[in-house]
Design a protein around this nucleic acid. Structure first.
Length: 924
RNA sequence: GCGCAUGUGGCGUAAUUGGUAGCCGCGUUAGACUUAGGAUCUAAUGUCUCAGGACGUGGGGGUUCGAGUCCCUUCAUGCGCACCA
């Protein structure tokens, strides 16, 4: 029998399917293991060879765990809502559901070709009403919740209402948009609308009026993680800041828990660091500064450097700050208005790029609460409205931005740290001793910066001029999108009051066109009868992309449950994801939202683990490797890469399918496109045309896309799987290069020929030799350790070595080959399964075999070879029987003839023997 | 600017975690075979070399009998955050 991957793979796929080999059920007699891939958005382009990298790794791990006796949950589904299908619908009128279904079918077939062990019966799609019912359900649960900071958990909004009824806002420590204070009487006197507005201030899913990222080109708002450098991540369209009423999730309430949770999960340091940055915790103090001559008005500011308060020489307000109007004096009104107008037309992007110092004096003065000094209040856009209180105390001596502002407007600079020279630049280091820091109630002089920060914070709190405060950069997530292809938000408006609509699922209605209405309402405004049965209008916005992906891992545990997101039983068995594999581009999006969503459900006891993903592996991106030809300008003559610098050339992308090892198939090139039909080539004497190459994103336009289907057609799925792993460490990004795949293909064929020579079966029941067992157990040891460490590239190398050794040993032993196949099965499941049946005559599937234990006995050496060095230089080897005592090793080394040369005329000072490793002889 | 990674042959990478740097594969070179292939096999392949060796893990310094690995410093690349007070 020849190795014929096509026959084998189609037969094995049928065998797996017919036998429901990968169906998983709760089985309390076995330990569980949950391996999850980040589910894909099914794009129209299909999978390229880079996409399955992480899937292959997780599949290997799943199969390995199963062989070890774990009950492994390894599902796959589709993140089906998204912009591309909707953009396509706008252009063609094709319903996004149709596009999405087609794309999913294509994805499924491509994934199945690779031979993953998914339990497809548990598959989910975020656009199925049976799935998004639970997305909507969670949203309503958030709508009906507030965050009690004292208990540090979410609680039903009903409890908050009951407390308002009883005592008003007194004693409530809640996460909220703004601090409110009212009595029980005031609460009771409120109208329904006023009560609704008040509660919005506390709900975890709330309608808020805030500055949002508005993308006019996409016609929707975007979350912070969907915007990068002032343009949309999808499409790269400009994004503006705009104040709009939007549904938001109070993610900020969970900032501290999201931060702390990172300490208990196995994620890479860089990813944790990215999340820590994104959450952006800073400890400081909020302080109030009185405005001179205005008893009714205080500025509240946030600072992390309370110790520098004696160096405040001015105050600055963000242009959007609510204080601006209040502090502007009549004399300054015109100047302030002019300034506000001048910055209003500047976009966020322009403000980021152009860091000109601008600002205007408000006319008012604030009084430093510690020194009593009067300082001017300015307005400038270098202060952000969205962070802290939108107002700062400026300490130019020790903050570079304040320093630049002070120099530009010629404001005083007071150094506060001994020896700091602030004549040319500010002094930002947090070291040294304080000077100039004495006021009527507090003296910081002589303290170190660290001591001063602590002392100042303590004083601020005790004297009542402010309080210690922790601020986070993490913003609440904007949760509405003015788009069609997303989950409807289950809210209706009863007399204008947003009210939960709890007949779920609230299904996405049909509309005639996937565009905003003529009156500028979102596409759902086109839906007929988009009201509750009672006639109340339903919300027109839909949910963002991250909604459906925030709890999908829970649904796989119990995907067909109509009564709950996940049953108690299923959740208590599967708990949370033990291994999650996916790209690091989700660090500040999906991976934050999921953790938030999970913690919220945890607060209500819906689930039992407070972190969704115990261990996370970020697979690297596989880039394309593009090839270029070099056309001499204004000709149809192409010059080989080594010679191109002698000519004035233009590089042109060339289809990598007509290039092999960077050598161009010139005939194929002429046939590729009509304009190249009469192309001429200049090459080095006697050599082919050499193409240049570059590592770029894999994309059609660069002609560098490699389709896994083509690879499987030519080499088989096992070779593709092995090769993707062989490419390098899983976390690293690397270019795809089809050239190397032949080596792996050769290995698979070599493996096959261990079992078959033509139609002759080579396997027999002979006793394994010691050599056979040593080769095998070396492999088992290596691969077991590698899989645990997620180091698959070195495993593939180990397979190659083992198969080479067994081949040269002419190993025929069934016992050895059987274990070899089991170890190989996670990597190359088709060929392993095939040989398991047809060469070894085994019943059932290799997936149910037992992972072999390795035995150190077989790995022991009879003798040990050690390197001997003199003063760490120049070496020779000595070989001694295993287990030789150190003194005997020394003696053997010193008696070796090669040692004589080095010892001649010198004395031995020291001999170092490390058992089994090396000997160094120090001579002098 | 702050933070996190990563620097090893022509290329992808490996190194039992401080013990003979370059495993495995690609590519290249030479040879064998031939049903002339995108096939298979064998051998060589870090650099220099006066053929004894010398030099080699981005650069410089240090610890050590011994450093790719640990420490200091510096350079380069990638990623994240960034007028966050």
């Amino acid at each position: 029998m020849e190795y014929n991957h096509k026959d084998i793979e189609s037969r094995i796929h049928k065998f797996w399917n017919d036998g429901d080999i990968y169906k998983v059920e709760i089985d309390s007699s076995r330990p569980k293991f949950y391996v999850l891939d980040m589910f894909p958005y099914p794009s129209g382009a299909g999978l390229h060879v880079g996409h399955p990298l992480g899937y292959i790794a997780s599949d290997i791990f799943s199969r390995y765990k199963r062989l070890q006796g774990f009950n492994v949950l390894h599902p796959m589904g589709f993140d089906a809502y998204g912009l591309p299908a909707e953009q396509y619908a706008i252009q063609t009128g094709q319903h996004p559901e149709v596009t999405t279904r087609h794309n999913i079918e294509r994805y499924c077939s491509q994934l199945n070709n690779i031979g993953f062990c998914y339990d497809w019966s548990r598959s989910i799609r975020t656009c199925d009403p049976g799935f998004y019912k639970w997305t909507q359900w969670a949203f309503l649960k958030m709508f009906n919740s507030w965050y009690d900071r004292s208990a540090d958990r979410a609680k039903p909004i009903g409890e908050l209402i009951a407390r308002f009824e009883e005592k008003g806002s007194e004693g409530i420590n809640a996460a909220c948009s703004k601090e409110l204070a009212f009595s029980a009487g005031e609460w009771r006197a409120m109208s329904d609308k006023e009560k609704s507005d008040t509660l919005m201030n506390y709900r975890l899913a709330y309608l808020g009026n805030s500055m949002v990222n508005w993308c006019p080109k996409l016609g929707t708002v975007l979350a912070n993680d969907e915007v990068s450098e002032g343009v949309s991540v999808r499409g790269g369209y400009p994004v503006e800041q705009k104040e709009m009423w939007q549904w938001c999730l109070r993610v900020s309430a969970y900032a501290e828990r999201l931060l702390r949770g990172l300490d208990n999960i196995e994620w890479s340091d860089s990813l944790k660091e990215t999340q820590r940055n994104w959450i952006g915790r800073s400890e400081g103090a909020e302080m109030r500064f009185k405005i001179d001559g205005r008893d009714d008005l205080e500025l509240e500011i946030f600072t992390t450097r309370a110790d520098t308060v004696f160096g405040v020489t001015f105050m600055v307000l963000a242009p959007e700050s609510k204080y601006v109007d209040l502090v502007t004096t009549p004399e300054q009104r015109a100047a302030v208005d002019e300034y506000l107008a001048s910055i209003r037309h500047r976009t966020e992007r322009e403000r980021m790029i152009d860091k000109r110092v601008t600002g205007v004096f408000s006319g008012s003065y604030a009084i430093n609460p510690l020194s009593g000094k009067k300082v001017p209040v300015w307005i400038s856009d270098y202060v952000l409205a969205g962070y802290g209180t939108g107002a700062i105390m400026a300490v130019p001596a020790h903050d570079s931005r304040d320093y630049a502002f002070a120099r530009h407007f010629d404001l005083p600079v007071i150094p506060l740290i001994e020896g700091a020279d602030v004549s040319e630049q500010c002094f930002e280091a947090k070291e040294g001793r304080m000077i100039n820091s004495e006021g009527p109630t507090l003296n910081l002089n002589g303290l170190t910066v660290k001591e001063a920060i602590a002392a100042a914070k303590k004083h601020v709190e005790e004297s009542g001029i402010g309080r210690v405060k922790v601020n986070y950069r993490l913003r609440d997530a904007i949760f509405s999108r003015q788009r069609y292809w997303g989950e409807p938000i289950p809210i209706c408006y009863v007399d204008g009051i947003p009210t939960a609509y709890d007949k779920l699922p609230l299904e996405l209605p049909e509309i005639d066109k996937y565009l905003p209405t003529e009156t500028g309402e979102p596409p759902l405004g086109r839906a007929k009868n988009w009201t509750t049965p009672e006639g109340f209008p339903l919300e027109l916005n839909t949910m963002p992309g991250f909604a459906g992906s925030s709890a999908y891992y829970l649904r796989y545990m119990d995907p067909h449950n109509a009564d709950a997101l996940v049953s108690k039983e299923a959740n208590e068995y599967w708990r949370s994801v033990d291994l999650y594999v996916g790209g690091s581009e989700h660090a500040t999006g999906h991976l934050i939202y999921s953790r938030f969503w999970n913690k919220f459900l945890y607060d209500y006891g819906v689930i039992v683990d407070d972190e969704p993903f115990r261990k996370l592996i970020n697979q690297g991106m596989i880039q394309g490797r593009s090839n270029f030809v070099y056309r001499i300008k204004d000709t149809n003559t192409f010059v080989s890469a080594p010679l191109k610098d002698n000519y004035d050339t233009t590089p042109i992308h060339v289809d990598i399918n007509i290039v092999k090892n960077d050598i161009l198939d010139t005939d194929a090139f002429r046939a590729w496109r009509p304009e190249f039909a009469d192309a001429e080539f200049i090459t080095e004497e006697g050599k082919g045309y050499v193409c240049g190459y570059a590592v770029e994103k894999m994309s059609k336009s660069m002609f560098n896309v490699v389709n896994p289907d083509d690879m499987i057609e030519r080499y088989g799925a096992d070779t593709l799987r092995l090769y993707e792993m062989f490419l390098g460490p899983i976390e690293q990004s690397k270019p795809w290069d089809t050239n190397g795949i032949d080596g792996v293909f050769r290995f698979v064929k070599k493996l096959w020929s261990l079992f078959w020579k033509g139609d002759t079966l080579l396997v027999d029941d002979s006793e394994p030799t010691r050599e056979n067992l040593k080769s095998l157990h070396k492999l088992i040891k290596k691969v077991t350790a590698d899989i645990e460490a997620f180091s698959f590239n070195t495993s593939v190398a180990a397979f190659m070595i083992c198969v080479n050794e067994l081949a040269s040993q002419k190993c025929r032993s069934r016992a050895v080959l059987e274990e070899l196949l089991v170890v190989l099965a996670p990597f190359a499941p088709h060929v392993a399964e095939e040989l398991w049946h047809n060469a070894l005559g085994k019943e059932g599937t290799i997936c149910d075999a037992r992972w072999p234990e390795f035995s150190e006995d077989y790995l022991k050496e009879d003798s040990v070879t050690m390197a001997v060095s003199f003063n760490g230089k120049a070496r020779f080897n000595i070989t001694v029987p295993a287990g030789t005592a150190n003194d005997d090793v020394q003696a053997a080394a010193l008696a070796d003839p090669a040692a004589a040369k080095w010892l001649d005329g010198k004395t031995v000072r020291k001999v170092i023997v490390v058992p089994g490793k090396i000997v160094n002889i120090v001579v002098g």
